[in-house]
Design a binder for these strands. Sequence first.
DNA 1: CACGCGTGGGA
DNA 2: TTCCCAAGCGT
Length: 354
Amino acid sequence: MADSVADRLLAWYDQHGRKNLPWHEDRTPYRVWVSEIMLQQTQVTTVIPYYEAFMARFPDVKSLAEAPVDDVLQHWSGLGYYARARNLQKAAKAVMADHGGEFPKDQEQLEALTGIGRSTAAAILAQAHGIRASILDGNVKRVLARYHAVHGWPGQTAVLRALWEHAEQHTPHERVRDYTQAIMDLGAMVCTRRKPDCEHCPLADDCEARAQGLTAALPESKPKKAKPEKETWLLMIEDDAGNLLMERRPPSGIWGGLWSLPELDTAITLDELPEVAERELGIACDDAQPLSVFRHTFSHYHLHIHPVRLRHAGTAAEMDNSDLAWQPREDAPTLGIPSPIRKLLTQPEQTTLL
DNA sequence: CACGCGTGGGA
DNA sequence: TTCCCAAGCGT
């Protein structure tokens, strides 16, 4: 009989595993936690520079808890899934208020923190404390779905239950920290979604998917729907000094909590625009000019964006509305701004024409 | 439970 | 150009 899955993964990890990622040094619960949240649905190479900057600005839970939310969102700007950033700070405040500034070493209490689910809680326990806990991220799901030839899409309850069961069965009692990293690394480096490198896989000998010729077919993926087309109108209101009017988006929905251009979700004529802007925003403007329409693709839909330029005569006064702010067009470094909007502001001529 | 939530890179 | 995906979680 071959060595256990854990033994083979650990031996492979010693030879080939990733050990020099930024969050591998000084594995405090805080540093592990921030890395795990950033890495949710986000690739390692994307995360690295964000992680470095975030840690420099917010070196510990206390600094994160006490920071202005716009400061946190600014450091998340471009990473996507912005609820993660808001939840991160909410959890940091809870750690300060309810746990004396120390992360609980308990799965249940970790999961009670906003944004920490079963897998992230386990990762913190295993990586920061070496406590035996099982993770099940996309990499592990793929490895286990193939090794055990689990059919069905991982969103299905029965499939998820089976995968969690396998994950817990394989988790060793020793070297949990390395094992957790090892099985993720195998999924990321060998047992990849496309073109898996089975020749160099330590689990190939008794991999069920390999034996049955199902490697490419597993894990199965959810049947997808066509992306709907949506439309929106964005107001680029500029004053005489070249400042643009920005508006904070509502906390839920796309780009929640970030700063963007004032938005209208219904078409209106250019003639009506100044009146609507005055009524909705309290800003007097004129000279409405349509710019080139462009299309931005999100995960679940396409968005046709109609930018309209408006002029605000005079220089902007202080706003009494905290969800509106005048910002220089070139750089708005203290605010979290979504990438497509940032692009529109800084290089409007380079946006794709329709 | 199904869906909403972003972005940049690769095929 | 277009599609798909990558260290999930909240609702």
